[in-house]
Design a protein around this nucleic acid. Structure first.
Lengths: 150, 150
DNA sequence: CCTAATTGCTATAGCGACTAGAGGTTCAAG
DNA sequence: CTTGAACCTCTAGTCGCTATAGCAATTAGG
């Protein structure tokens, strides 16, 4: 299973080719040896490392957190308090975002339900955006909390 | 209430000063007249426009959507189908994100609960990241779905 | 063995939606 | 009239990629 091209590694890991190169460039993924012609040749350790990163990203960890977790996993004798703390912090963050998004969802539902399907001037969607007082009023006091994303 | 400085506008709207200038630079907010010395002087229409944008951002609309909604609100006779559609699209997006985050939350809870508070080598947090098979396995197949944000 | 298609390489720029900093100017209060 | 807060422009940085351009290497088929 050794001598994986970057494309093969991408397929096996589920991480896109440019992203793999990006991870290497920022020191998230060990730089692999190269073929005589200069192409990257990976092994199973790289695959494992990349899957670790991918899985962490799926769980919403930032690359800094994942770097810290990687470092910890390389020191198996250390207490796992720090790893646990990072995970708890991430859980708290996810819960915060869910709460914000739930408030947003409720407000959007209200907007959409009350739309009378007439003209813009009477449209509840536009009205609500123009005047926050038409809201239930409990959403996203901190607009950082709201969302953004893909 | 006319002749607002940018700082006053920022206070009244809840949008930061650099963000206001940014919105102007990308054509989201009308450029205001200037004082003799070249400082921006806003009026109530600008405040309203900015509150519209802010409210929309809190609800997670992208700036492109908000531009479209702004344009629609300037044409009150048009049917509100388009506005309704944009809101429904946003609602669907928010629901998608909540679903993704709920899956992530469940997984993080599992990780944290099972952490034995021993050493890293036995740490469920690290183990789970290393091996996806330890997951309930239902989270974020598309990693775009997951999260990211502030 | 040769060629063509595919895959790989580097480097740079762009995305969204801001945020931060440098270095200078204007304004308003006392 | 002085002082200091608030304002100005411009550039660069944030996060985590993604896209493009212009090449070079590899691999599969004939």
């Amino acid at each position: 299973m050794t001598d994986l091209s970057i494309g093969r590694l991408a397929t096996l890991s589920g991480v896109k080719v440019p992203t793999i190169r990006y991870y290497e460039s920022i020191g998230m993924l060990d730089a692999p040896p190269r073929s005589p012609g200069g192409q990257r040749r990976y092994d199973d350790d790289h695959l494992e490392q990349l899957r670790f990163i991918r899985h962490g990203r799926e769980l919403g960890f930032g690359l800094d957190d994942l770097r810290a977790l990687q470092d910890l996993s390389a020191r198996p004798d250390r207490p796992c308090e720090e790893a646990d703390g990072i995970a708890r912090k991430q859980l708290a963050e996810v819960e915060r975002r869910i709460a914000g998004l739930e408030a947003v969802r409720r407000e959007l539902e209200r907007m959409v339900e009350r739309c009378s399907h007439g003209v813009v001037d009477e449209c509840r969607v536009i009205q609500t955006l123009s005047d926050h007082h038409l809201c239930a009023g409990d959403h996203a006091p901190d607009h950082q909390t709201a969302l953004r994303d893909t």
